[in-house]
């Protein structure tokens, strides 16, 4: 949930934007990170681990653990706790390793 009126800091969320997760629209606010905005909308599962295929989501929120990797505007493995939302942002979960050896990626 978005905190509309913070007990100490008051109302802080002012500039709403629409972001897309798996092509579904969600409401977020400009100063929020991608990870936080998704959590506000009830999305916690951001991807799957590479070996055991287990769910992963935000853990450290400091850009250290890399558990919040997602694909943002076509770029794979973005630390979503470190970048802020932008209008129309397209976000997909990190379900497998990016294709780096196929056509268009050199070899």
């Amino acid at each position: 949930m978005h905190i509309k009126d913070h007990p100490v800091l008051g109302p802080q969320l002012q500039d709403p934007v629409t972001i897309y997760f798996n092509d579904q629209p969600y409401m977020a606010y400009k100063q929020q990170t991608v990870a936080a905005a998704l959590i506000a909308n009830g999305v916690k599962k951001f991807g799957l681990s590479r070996k055991l295929v287990q769910s992963r989501g935000l853990f450290c929120s400091r850009g250290r653990c890399c558990s919040c990797y997602m694909t943002v505007n076509g770029e794979d493995h973005v630390r979503t706790c470190m970048i802020r939302v932008e209008e129309g942002m397209e976000i997909y979960p990190n379900l497998e390793d990016p294709e780096v050896r196929g056509d268009g990626h050199g070899d």
Partner: peptide, 8 residues
């Protein structure tokens, strides 16, 4: 040896 390079 993964992306976080032992930080956690």
């Amino acid at each position: 040896m993964g992306p976080c390079q032992a930080k956690i």
